[in-house]
Nucleic acid binder design. Structure first.
Lengths: 248, 248
DNA sequence: CGGGGTTTTGAGTGATTTCAAGCGCAGTGG
DNA sequence: CCACTGCGCTTGAAATCACTCAAAACCCCG
């Protein structure tokens, strides 16, 4: 019941920044909301049944795309943030032996199908491209950065992604992540993450307190870490169109 | 001149294991060979001009998809093996700020377009799914495995991929990789890679000598490391069809 | 005023990096 | 045929980084 009243704000913010959406498309998104489903925190998502080649759109909540090793080690391959797309497990993921964990309660609904060449189709394509780019970031982060760099880099990514959905406030954002989850994403021990976090704070790079992360100077950090342009799909229409053109 | 005489064997092996290809499709692959292009080793690929949404097919040679950090650190995000697809830089890769390095001389040609729903389209889709799964593997490898495990896991991946193209001989394969390149893929120092390699050999896990890597017991290793089924697209038609169905 | 889960601290160990040098072999030119 | 060179591989020793185990402090919720 409650979920039907949730706003599609973050979601439409994001998709319409990724591509130009027509009024009917926006309406279809708004209406698809009524088919929303939800799962409680700490459960594993099982979407096999309702296969949907467009995936699902996450209306609210945070999820983690993860893989477990036989001995219990866990690696979070990617986070899925409000407004983003939940990849369909029936797809590649099935034989990639990964699963999706609800970090918080989740509300999501099947992504409305997009006509070939439509704005929505472009937005989906851009979304897929972003996921790929984020995977590359992740590999580089894990392979070649030390603890502090990994932390800053991931925080930066989360900030940029939340900004795209309009869920950040300036240089800070709210997060439901525990240090343990964050550690599983950056390939560190919770203990070592904690200490490195303190080092970051001491150096004035970032602040993480009571569910809020604040970056002191995202632009500087991004430059140091070699991250490409802060947000590829910025606020100006020109840049939007540029990005869209590149994806097409 | 020479390149025109290269066999499409590896390539057709691979694609026809990923999906059922019709005779005309096989012919189109064979003919597309005449549009082959090549680049010398140690050069960076620039494919922007000849954008092709299907990408290029690598006829021969090894390439590395990599990212550089501002201070010169290098991370190889993925290898591209003979018979596989070279992703199009005009795509996601452009704004992912990665580049493609020719490890050896390369010969490749534009992938022939595939009709919607055709076997070739399925093969391309399966190929894309495999790339994604390999990225997940890579993340897990870098985030949660120690040096020896990373080495074995990557060798295992390379073996499985080369088997798919019919380029492996039993449990061993030829590779043009230097230890430095391998180190850049598994996120280790060349020095430490070397030592860990010796440890692997001492424990009878694998042998790497004069451009040939041999795994002692791939199946056992795979189980230990939690790798999904040895090759998702095995030799039996049943398994092929199964895999194909899942992708579709 | 307890739990239970999360964060923080400490001390000791192990894994990985760094820097620096030596080795081995293939190609090259005298 | 023999230096000589370049490149990749190997080795050593010391420093750094990250992990482990264990316990204490914290904090929110009931």
């Amino acid at each position: 019941m409650r979920s039907f009243r949730l706003s599609t704000q973050a979601l439409t913010n994001r998709l319409s920044r990724l591509a130009d959406l027509s009024a009917p498309e926006l309406r279809s998104l708004h209406e698809a909301r009524t088919r929303a489903d939800s799962v409680p925190a700490r459960t594993e998502l099982q979407l096999d049944g309702k296969a949907n080649k467009c995936g699902n759109l996450l209306l609210s909540g945070w999820a983690a795309h993860l893989r477990m090793l036989p001995d219990g080690r866990r690696q979070i391959v990617a986070f899925i943030l409000p407004g983003e797309t939940i990849p369909d497990l029936a797809d590649a993921l099935a034989f990639a032996s990964t699963s999706i964990l609800a970090i918080t309660d989740l509300t999501f609904f099947p992504a409305p199908p997009a006509a070939e060449g439509s704005g929505l189709a472009h937005a989906y394509a851009a979304s897929r491209a972003l996921v790929l780019a984020q995977l590359f970031d992740n590999v580089t982060r894990l392979g070649r950065m030390n603890a502090q760099e990994r932390i800053c880099d991931l925080c930066l990514e989360l900030l940029e992604r939340l900004q795209l959905s309009g869920l950040a406030e300036g240089n800070s954002f709210a997060t439901p992540l525990t240090q343990e989850l964050f550690a599983d994403a950056v390939g560190l021990t919770p203990v070592h993450l904690n200490r490195s976090l303190q080092a970051c704070r001491r150096q004035g790079e970032l602040l993480w307190r009571s569910g809020h992360i604040t970056l002191h100077s995202p632009a500087d950090l991004a430059r140091q870490l070699g991250r490409r342009k802060p947000h590829p799909f910025a606020d100006t229409a020109d840049e939007m169109r540029l990005a869209e053109a590149r994806i097409a």
